[in-house]
Amino acid sequence: MKKILFTVSLLLGCLFTSMAQGDSYKIEGRLANTVNGKLLLIADTENGMIDIGEATVTNGIFEFTGRMPEMTVVYLTPVKKTPVLATIMLENAHYTITLGTNEMIVESDSEAQKIWKEFDDLNKCLLRTQQQMDAQARQNISLQPKLQQEFSKIENKVLADELALIKKYSDSYVSAYVVAGKMLGMDDTKLTARYEALGEKAKASFYGKRVATKLAEMQKVAVGAIAPNFSAPLADGGVLALHETKGKVKIVDFWASWCQPCRQENVNLLKLYKRYRPRGLEIISVSLDDNKQAWLTAIGQDGSDWKNVSDLKQPSAIATEYLVTTIPRTFILDEENRIVAKNLRGKELEKFIVEMLKKKKE
């Protein structure tokens, strides 16, 4: 009987030891000796951001412990919650945080954290390149166009490498987090490719579900869809309804008086309008301004004598419906208000307009 009890006790002891090692997490901070204060751990969950821990930093030393039912993205922040000091793929594992030159370094035996590091290294490389090129452009403005072209190539290479990692770790929660984190700045084609690269497990995560929801919204303004109708006040009085506006080809252009690239593009649009309006081109500019005088002044300065509308709201309800997050942004519509192209500018836009008008003539 004693032998049986001893064996059961031994087994229970091994079980509890295993649980203590594998069913809890520990985050140890080793910062500079002079660092003091309080830090928070904030979890990004399906129900929003939730504080899951607070630690006091004494002479650079702090510690968080607890248990996670599943891998969760958490952010280490000061008590004021800004800025984010470190991103942690938190699961029941051991983490060590040290102070690097310009950042906090997270090291762990967590598989998810190792995967995140591969993605994060790509982002940091791109950010460093951008900062270097921005510095060069400030020193010599004439280099700006060339630097922008170079950066665009580098950015595309990084995005391609990132997509390769998404495919490599297709079932990882981390991949779903990366795709969701960048979806606002992506068009439907690129986002669809990334979503389709995810495995079923990653798609089932709440990050995967966020992406699926966004893609469903994007289909409403995708090439081939009928452009959402809207009505908005015109700059010279009255109200414009998109679907009632006649034109063999229509350009819906989102811009703002304070957006310099938009103002530069207005020069190209003016040339197009004068040249192709007699053949059936119509332009509807939708301003994101909330200051009426600034909007009207910019229209006058740029000579934008086509149809200009704005709801003068921040955010613009029209821009929200069209999922516009950056400007300038254009949608090209046919006579039936079907979206036939997006985000064309300059010579590329003119070539497309000419081809469409030629088809209408035929």
Rank of each mutant, 00 (worst) to 15 (best):
318 I>Q: 08
69 P>Y: 03
47 N>S: 14
309 V>I: 03
210 R>K: 14
256 A>Y: 04
362 E>V: 08
142 S>E: 13
139 Q>R: 11
35 V>H: 02
300 G>P: 00
301 Q>F: 08
33 N>G: 14
306 W>E: 01
10 L>V: 03
122 L>I: 02
345 R>H: 15
67 R>K: 15
238 G>R: 12
340 V>C: 08
293 Q>H: 00
223 V>S: 06
275 R>F: 04
159 L>T: 09
93 A>K: 11
19 M>K: 13
129 T>W: 07
170 S>F: 01
129 T>C: 07
327 I>G: 03
177 Y>P: 11
132 Q>Y: 13
242 L>C: 03
30 R>W: 08
217 E>L: 10
362 E>T: 11
124 K>N: 14
65 T>C: 05
286 V>W: 04
334 D>F: 03
88 I>K: 11
4 I>K: 11
90 L>M: 01
231 S>R: 00
182 K>L: 07
7 T>C: 11
353 I>P: 05
345 R>G: 12
38 K>N: 10
345 R>V: 14
287 S>H: 02
140 N>E: 00
327 I>H: 06
156 N>H: 13
222 A>E: 01
319 A>P: 02
31 L>R: 04
39 L>Y: 05
272 L>T: 06
220 K>M: 01
158 V>E: 09
258 W>N: 02
132 Q>P: 09
170 S>G: 01
350 E>Q: 01
203 K>F: 04
325 T>G: 04
331 F>D: 04
84 V>N: 07
53 G>K: 09
274 K>S: 10
35 V>N: 06
58 T>I: 14
138 R>T: 09
79 V>F: 12
103 E>W: 09
110 S>Q: 03
170 S>M: 08
95 Y>M: 02
317 A>H: 13
270 L>R: 12
144 Q>T: 14
